[in-house]
Design a protein around this nucleic acid. Structure first.
Lengths: 336, 336
DNA sequence: TTGTAGGCGTTATCAG
DNA sequence: CTGATAACGCCTACAA
């Protein structure tokens, strides 16, 4: 009870005393510096192990002016989509001796701001922000302080993105080939607008001489529950769309369920395409037609990019493989 | 390029200089101490804001000997199950002025060890470990250093768990009521053994006078891909089980898919019950019969518990509502 | 109400 | 090869 506060950890000084050397020698020994007698080095190392020494990050960060930590502000932990990204980030970070810290933002701008502020206080080596919500200016004002790498935000100065347009284009081509002409588009929480998916959607329609129908554009809040409403909206349209380009797989799952509840057969009565290719996507009934993003690689690239940025080396935006269309069972030819 | 290293942040001294006071006064002013002239306090506060002051956590942690950070070692970010927990933790932590740091362990023991070690270096106020993999002794040796709260590990000295037996019992009762007698059990990555779900499984069988069949016990690795093998194993059993008690929803999803591929109709030919009640569980085809865990509340409780532990107050294990059975479409009466 | 002094644990830069 | 010393930015006595 309450004993946690009293138990002081073993510090470098304790080791120094035990080894009969000066603290600075301990530091050098622990760093594996060559300019320290092998004998002392081993003695110190052994002592450190025995005594259960753990470096005090705060002290180290204070004097080194860097923490060897990379902060990642994840918008939605519920979406396994980001897990792959995080894994890529972590694996690559480990190679560079960096640790990864994850903060959840729930896709809320203020939370994202807070998370980044927190990272700054921690003196992180860099910040990775996938699908940032905060305006560009916010990050620009910080860029002088800490390197920031965005994931999937092509407007940002430093970002790792894959050709998000091409994946969406592939979806559209696929739907159009199946004969669909009335295709609904469900945007993400921030709405359509400059979003690449939406751009691809419009371009594809245009290229195929199909009139753009504002009524076919809906917005997914991010909450699965709201898919019921989306389904209602789709059902109300007359004529009704025969296919849906959904914001992501989660949205597609919710939508398919809601449409079924309303008596539709998927994909016979309506094709639904997702985005992300969650691990479960191929295992659903019907399996989801979707776009696979190379999230793991993008995670790796973010760290490499960050690293170059820090070094001030010519930090070229890394090339990321393009997303790939996965045609599965949730899309079918347009009903006659 | 490389400018990140040069731009020193504004410190308390800079403010002091600008405000024409001593640094220690700035500290006090920023803390809102009453023993500082309102005039100076405001002046300092204004200056801090203008100059974009951000406290240096490293320095603060060093002197205060605590970081106001709580570390959470999450086993599997892919599983949305933990997202709820994390949300509960974060929301409650915010109330206590604590920040939450999440580290991914991928359910790997060494990674978990590393994560906790990292937390210690950061001088976190406490550590929360859901479904820990490391042995109890590991944590016991740390308990003197930092308060540790486990989630769902009833063997640990301090843990927040809900009555995990009752949820599993409910599943078993449900399956038995449907007439199932040959019920397979899929354990988690760590195998069956002392695990509460497994205990409930065996007890239920016993109570109903059903012989325990070791051949009906399988282990889920945690990787969705391996569900195909599990399905094969199930198919090979003769007589074949008519129901499966799956480790979690993810496992159930993979299993249902694999069984279908092998020609079974779910739930007609085999009932599959999951665990966790993922948000998508109700929206699958068929909707999953599963057990809903109060993860959000458990997250809240973990923080409260941790808080009490720190204060050395009488830290009673909090009472958590029991998990609830959700009967849906993936289970059906035993086929004749 | 404010300034002074000392220290938190570590590292880097000097001498020796 | 090793020891001494001065930071790093902040906080808390204590003194004024």
């Amino acid at each position: 009870m309450g004993r946690h506060l009293g138990s002081r950890r073993v510090t470098i000084k304790d080791i120094a005393k035990a080894a009969n050397v000066h603290p600075s020698t301990v530091t050098r020994a622990l760093q594996g510096s060559t300019s320290v007698k092998p004998d002392t080095r081993e003695r110190v190392a052994a002592l450190a192990r025995e005594m259960g020494y753990r470096p005090n990050m705060a002290a180290r960060t204070l004097v080194m002016r860097r923490s060897h930590i990379v902060g990642v502000a994840i918008p939605d932990m519920t979406n396994p989509f980001f897990a792959d990204l995080a894994h890529g980030i972590e694996d690559e970070a480990a190679k560079h001796g960096l640790r990864v810290l994850i903060r959840n933002t729930s896709g809320i701008e203020s939370a994202e701001r807070d998370a980044v502020g927190f990272f700054l206080e921690l003196k992180v080596d860099g910040v990775i922000v996938p699908m940032a919500r905060c305006p560009n200016e916010f990050y620009e004002s910080l860029a002088a302080t800490v390197p920031i790498v965005h994931v999937n935000r092509s407007e940002a100065p430093h970002h790792v993105s894959c050709d998000s347009v091409s994946g969406s284009r592939a979806i559209m081509e696929h739907l159009l080939e199946l004969g669909h002409r009335r295709i609904a588009f469900i945007s993400g929480p921030t709405g359509p607008g400059p979003e690449p998916k939406f751009r691809a959607y419009r371009e594809a329609l245009e290229q195929h001489g199909i009139a753009y129908e504002p009524d076919f554009i809906l917005t997914f809040s991010g909450a699965l529950d709201d898919c019921a409403e989306l389904a209602d909206s789709l059902m109300r349209r007359a004529p009704r769309p025969t296919a849906v380009f959904a914001w992501n797989d989660l949205c597609a799952i919710g939508l398919i369920h809601a449409l079924r509840e309303r008596g539709l057969d998927i994909p016979r009565d309506m094709s639904v395409a997702g985005h992300d290719d969650l691990e479960i996507a191929a295992r659903l009934e019907p399996p989801l037609t979707t776009v696979h993003w190379p999230m793991y690689q993008m995670g790796q690239h973010s760290i490499r990019y960050l690293y170059k940025l820090r070094e001030g080396r010519n930090a070229q935006r890394p090339a990321v493989p393009a997303p790939e269309l996965q045609v599965r069972g949730s899309t079918a030819p347009v009903p006659k």
